[in-house]
């Protein structure tokens, strides 16, 4: 994988477990990325400063410092995409990392296809922002679903879909962040505005409504996926 100048993207892996690092390196290099490794938080910080990477894979449990600390320090001056690696049952940590500016997360154990998909989405997203193209595409098309943000037109299952204003705002946010997980807090802030942070059922009710209008089977969705305990992810469908 290359960036817009035709140079392979540089991925920094900050992870203390050696076999895990080896596996990540193998999987990423096989896809054409350049990979650098750090086993500790301090080492990782030095490498980020010395040779800024295009993407960081960050383990949350590091021996010398909390991964969250690294994330906060990086976010003080850089918008480089950060993918957090964590375990199931630590939904709270994931949400906190995402709210602190992580771009996405991977739950251990994860498969190679999942890893590559997340890395691709994060890099594409950051390239768009760098190019000044704003947050995401103005048009989304996949299978039987099209969303045209310019024309404010949504079609699904072969027909025009009529949305309410809130539904549309929510869908537009998902489309602009396609592939990324969005936390409840982020959705509430962006769609409902400040003061609603505790009303976590708002997005859930609206996602349910959107699913009924957009999905073939709202109880087994293709596009609007729930990441239980974390938030929602809008995908291209599988």
């Amino acid at each position: 994988m290359t960036n817009d100048q035709g140079v392979p993207s540089n991925v920094l892996v900050i992870e203390d477990d050696v076999p895990m690092r080896r596996f990540l390196r193998a999987a990423l290099e096989n896809e054409g990325y350049r990979v650098t490794e750090a086993g500790k938080a301090r080492e990782g910080m030095t490498m980020i400063l010395g040779h800024p990477p295009d993407l960081i894979l960050l383990d949350l449990g590091l021996p010398d410092a909390d991964g969250m600390t690294v994330l906060r320090r990086v976010r003080e001056w850089s918008q480089v995409p950060v993918l957090v690696l964590s375990a199931r049952g630590q939904e709270y940590d994931k949400v906190e990392a995402l709210n602190e500016g992580a771009d996405d997360y991977l739950t251990k154990p994860f498969g190679v296809p999942e890893l590559l998909a997340r890395v691709r989405v994060a890099l594409r997203h950051s390239a768009r922002i760098k190019a000044g193209a704003g947050e995401g595409a103005a048009r989304f098309e996949s299978g039987d679903l099209t969303v045209d943000l310019g024309a404010r037109r949504v079609t699904a299952k072969g027909a025009d879909v009529h949305l309410t204003r809130t539904e549309y705002r929510l869908l537009a946010l998902f489309v602009r962040n396609a592939g990324k997980v969005l936390t409840h807090r982020y959705l509430l802030q962006e769609v409902w505005g400040p003061g609603c942070e505790l009303q976590t059922h708002y997005p859930r009710m609206y996602v349910a409504a959107l699913r009924r209008k957009l999905e073939e089977d709202p109880a087994d969705p293709k596009y609007l996926l729930t990441e239980q305990g974390v938030g929602y992810r809008f995908t291209e469908g599988t």
Partner: peptide, 15 residues
């Protein structure tokens, strides 16, 4: 506990 449309949980379990 938070308010959930049940489809939401069924969907994520099936996912």
């Amino acid at each position: 506990k938070e308010w959930f449309p049940l489809e939401d949980v069924i969907g994520s379990a099936l996912g």
